[in-house]
């Protein structure tokens, strides 16, 4: 089977992003990260390494935290996505956003959207409780500024306020 089937270059997909429905035409090789940032101007989600190594691109796909840089947009057809832009309710910040401010849990802020989305996913998994467990469960998110101790403190504080099935 060496002849490439004459497939169209773009495919129609539907995504629910932060509660809003989007009908899009995407080429198969477009990553979810590039779709969010370059096509939809949702630039809160960051590109650090583009190889699954840093966690800056973490978003929630059907409620689970994933690396958007290693996800093809076309494979998300029909899925529900939450990015950092979708966590606050109007002017009311998500408990984690509030806790990050209270604990000064960043310096440059580049890793922060990924850290927060990752912590929302972690809370839904319901596995991490102790400080050591939080550290391990947040190890997929690197912080080049080394704000780790404040990040863990913020997550620890916000965790009890994040009950319930939805972020």
């Amino acid at each position: 089977m060496s002849d490439v089937p004459s497939a169209p270059n773009t495919h129609a997909i539907g995504l629910y992003i932060n509660g809003e429905q989007h009908h899009l035409q995407v080429p198969p090789w477009l990553t979810l990260l590039d779709l969010l940032r370059d096509e939809l101007d949702l630039v809160g989600t960051k590109k650090g390494c583009d190889h699954g190594q840093c966690g800056a691109c973490t978003v929630l796909r059907n409620g689970r935290r994933v690396n958007a840089c290693l996800t093809l947009a076309i494979m998300c057809d029909g899925d529900e996505l939450t990015t950092i832009e979708g966590l606050a309710h109007g002017d009311r910040l998500h408990p984690l956003q509030q806790a990050f401010i209270a604990h000064d849990a960043f310096q440059c802020g580049y890793c922060t959207p990924g850290q927060i989305c990752s912590a929302v996913g972690m809370a839904r998994e319901g596995r991490a409780r102790s400080r050591a467990q939080i550290q391990e469960a947040m190890s997929g998110n690197l912080c080049r500024c080394g704000a780790y101790s404040n990040i863990v403190a913020a997550v620890e504080e916000a965790l009890p306020q994040m009950g319930g099935p939805r972020p």
Partner: peptide
């Protein structure tokens, strides 16, 4: 192995 995000995928 890997990270929680990667293990989800």
């Amino acid at each position: 192995g890997a990270s929680p995000q990667l293990r989800n995928m």
